[in-house]
Write a protein that binds this DNA or RNA. Structure first.
Length: 571
RNA sequence: GCACACGUGGCCUAGCCUGGAUAUGGCGGCAGCCUCCUAAGCUGCAAGCCGAGGGUUCGAAUCCCUCCGUGUGCGCCA
């Protein structure tokens, strides 16, 4: 339930009537002025041509022809715009009414029943997640939450890459490298314990042709479908995955399902894709390897051929990915992939190939730019990586310092709990607040920012609201919103009223960065209210103000939850 | 070379899809605010040819074209 809806409808109806009285029925826009000059505005410029009059005159004329509106307190013409200010009392009642009716559901859209399969993360199980890759689960999980809030039936999925040289190499390393030849493990966690084998195996393969031969042999057995090798590799991937899942859990990312790449080899569906593609008129062969010529489909570059088998007939990653997408289409109405920008060409090729298979559906993709370090690109080999686990640990430690400074009264475990909420939240918030397609340079000072536009800023406002409520004691009876008349109260109410439209923006249009921005706006409006308007000593306004605090608390909690952040009751 | 993205005060960023009033916030800087609900807060000040140039339009940060800069891709890798 959107409290602003009925106001906008009334404005629209009234403007339609006014324009008709001026002799036109051209469609018009209603906008929300960014300057805050009015609640709604209708630009009259497009009518100038039709009515052969200057826009300011049209606005004046139309303003004079507006029918009476009970939800609007003021309407006026200004610089070619028709402006409207909604009635404060009506708005307060509608907004607080909607929030108290819906509580934790305030802002949610209608349940649509549309099944969405959202694939995200899907990092190769060869090492711990580093902050470059961490953009993926954070964007994916936040988008999933936003879409659920808007009413979609969302399932998240991780596509586990347990096929190919990387995991085979890691598996070889686990079997053949004695523990005493390894560099020390920096963290007692499955992925960190295993990655040293991967790094070591990589070096050994480069230096020693015999190792390369052994790994090559293992890979061939794997691709021939050797059950023993496949099971071994899968076990390795599973082990690594445990560590990755643990890291994800620490930033509140939970994945609903895991699909294993090797499954598409086992069940023959990758093979079926090959057979069907081979029948395409665009299919060609180069020394036994099959490809599609994609030049006619707008693919540019040095290589326009899209290979889907090797010379020995075995399938490639993209072939299996096609089988995976056909499987996804059978399970959901919409499929969304969160991918790094390096996947763009691959996805374009995939989309064309799927169409050649007769598929009308194509996956929707959200691409994000890479996170780099000030000194350049992250690379596991060069050791220029920051692991997500290290970032989280650092964030929590920094947060704990801050909590200790402020709250000497709390027991240690409570401090730790709050520090966790803050540290982890700060990490997520700082990733989602910028558009995915913008490049991101990782800087500790930004990632650990606890003030201004940050998660702790929003969480702090929530904690303040809770604190007032704790001190207020028993709940009130009926409240009269018409006593909420000062500028801080009204500003806050106007912000709270917009939440449903922000959920629509982030969930339907997939612009998740709108949500943290809105959270900041609510918190800022509340902090101003908090500074200048006494609540507990609010005398005859006390009950109404307590209701406003409660409404704000509900909205802040809803925003935080949808962002995957916790809403601490004290900080 | 070709393709795709990004370029907004010293730094980071919203707005771009769907053109409209004075371009959104934050960090940093400067100056203030705690006998009163948690100062992770609040107030004020300084700081912008919205990468450059052209076009479309009554009107362009927003749409189109060219150029410059940065990133990414163009494997019988995954």
């Amino acid at each position: 339930m959107d409290p602003l809806e009925k106001f906008e409808h009334q404005v629209r109806d009234a403007v339609k009537i006014a324009f008709e009285r001026l002799g036109t029925d051209v469609p018009f826009d209603i906008e929300v002025p960014s300057t805050g000059i009015a609640d709604f505005a209708v630009p009259c410029f497009p009518l100038a041509k039709v009515l052969r009059k200057a826009p300011p005159i049209i606005a004046e004329d139309a303003a004079a022809k507006l029918p009476p509106m009970d939800l609007v307190s003021r309407s006026w013409a200004e610089r070619g715009y028709l402006n409207f200010q909604v009635d404060d009392r009506q708005l307060s009642m509608a907004t607080l009414g909607a929030i108290f009716d819906m509580k934790s559901n305030y802002g949610r859209g209608k349940v649509s029943g549309t099944r969405v399969l959202l694939e995200h993360t899907s990092v190769n199980p060869t090492g711990p997640i580093h902050v470059g890759r961490a953009r993926n689960p954070i964007i994916g999980d936040t988008l999933a939450r936003c879409m659920r809030a808007y009413g979609y039936d969302v399932t998240t999925e991780y596509y586990v890459n347990d096929v190919g040289k990387q995991v085979v190499l890691l598996t070889w390393g686990l079997e053949n490298i004695p523990a005493d030849k390894l560099s020390p493990v920096d963290r007692d966690k499955a992925d960190h314990r295993l990655v040293v084998y991967y790094q070591r195996a990589n070096r050994m393969m480069e230096d020693d042709p015999e190792v390369a031969r052994q790994v090559g042999h293992m890979l061939r057995r794997f691709e021939d479908g050797d059950k023993e090798v496949m099971a071994k590799v899968r076990r390795t991937a599973k082990l690594m995955l445990e560590g990755i899942i643990e890291s994800l859990a620490s930033i509140n990312v939970v994945i609903d399902q895991f699909t294993w790449e090797s499954g598409f080899i086992e069940d023959g569906s990758a093979r079926t894709v090959v057979e069907r593609l081979t029948r395409s008129e665009h299919c060609g062969q180069d020394q036994g390897a099959c490809y599609l010529e994609l030049k006619p489909f707008g693919i540019h570059g040095k290589e326009t051929r899209f290979f889907f088998t090797r010379a020995d007939g075995t399938t490639l990653y993209t072939t299996r990915d096609m089988a995976y997408h056909l499987d996804k289409f059978s399970r959901a109405d919409r499929t969304i992939n969160i991918l790094g920008e390096d996947q763009k060409l691959g996805q374009a090729q995939l989309a064309i190939a799927l169409r050649l298979l007769g598929q009308e559906r194509v996956p929707e993709c959200v691409f994000y730019s890479f996170v780099s370090l000030p000194e350049g690109r992250m690379s596991t080999r060069k050791g220029t990586v920051v692991y997500l686990d290290d970032l989280i640990e650092e964030a929590e430690e920094r947060a704990l310092e801050e909590v200790r400074k402020r709250r000497t009264d709390l027991p240690g475990d409570r401090m730790l709990e709050i520090a966790r909420a803050i540290g982890r939240g700060a990490v997520r918030y700082n990733i989602v607040r910028v558009q995915p397609e913008k490049p991101l340079v990782f800087k500790w000072e930004d990632a650990l920012n606890f003030e201004g536009n940050s998660a702790p800023f929003v969480q702090y406002a929530h904690a303040r609201a809770c604190s007032i409520q704790r001190k207020a004691g028993a709940a009130r009876g009926e409240i009269d919103p018409s006593v909420l008349t000062n500028e801080y109260e009204l500003k806050l109410i106007r912000v709270l009223a917009r939440y449903p439209s922000v959920v629509r923006e982030s969930g339907e249009k997939q612009r998740i960065q709108a949500l943290p921005a809105y959270g900041h706006e609510v918190a800022a409006a509340f902090n101003q209210f908090y500074t200048y308007v006494p609540v507990l000593k609010g005398e005859e306004s006390r009950e109404a103000r307590l209701a406003l605090v409660d409404a704000t608390r509900i909205v802040l909690a809803n925003v935080l939850t949808t962002l995957g952040l916790s809403a601490p009751e004290e900080m």
